[in-house]
């Protein structure tokens, strides 16, 4: 049983926040993946999706799901991250005030993604874009 696919994410469109991650969540449910794994995958993808919406013009969320591995790649079209170590620090954010007023941009996104993944890789080229790769190994059983 293997499934793969992708969702496009439009930057700046807050009305569609969480759409890609919600659809991925439904796919994981339909495949009988256990709840804790779905929870971790949902948090990771929602945060990645929000970063595309908040900071970039557009991006794509690609997934490959198999019985023993969930791989999620989120790729965007820029602007890229100058200092990845700094961006990974909990509480550090470059979000504008209006995004913070919405309750986003608290500097928790990337740390949340890393925490909820078994493997987390981030590559970024300033001026070009960022790619995040997250791997989650599903636990056995339903819970």
């Amino acid at each position: 049983m293997k499934k793969e696919g992708f969702f496009n994410i439009v930057g700046g469109d807050f009305s569609r926040s969480g759409e890609a991650s919600t659809q991925l969540k439904q796919i994981l449910h339909s495949m009988g993946i256990n709840n804790d794994t779905i929870r971790r995958a949902s948090i990771s993808t929602f945060e990645a999706e929000m970063n595309v919406i908040i900071y970039t013009p557009a991006g794509m969320l690609k997934y490959e799901i198999d019985d023993d591995i969930i791989k999620i790649i989120v790729q965007d079209m820029g602007p890229g991250i100058e200092d990845i170590d700094l961006a990974m620090k909990e509480g550090y954010s470059t979000a504008p005030d209006w995004v913070r007023e919405m309750g986003w941009g608290a500097g928790m996104g990337l740390p949340n993604m890393k925490k909820n993944s078994d493997e987390f890789k981030i590559d970024s080229v300033p001026g070009e874009g960022t790619t995040v790769e997250m791997i989650i190994y599903p636990k056995k059983g339903r819970e």
């Binding site: 926040s17 919600t22 929602f46 919405m102």
Partner: peptide, 14 residues
Amino acid sequence: TLQTHINVVAVAAM
């Protein structure tokens, strides 16, 4: 929460 915007629902649903 005191947030009122649409993303509240997406987070709650998630």
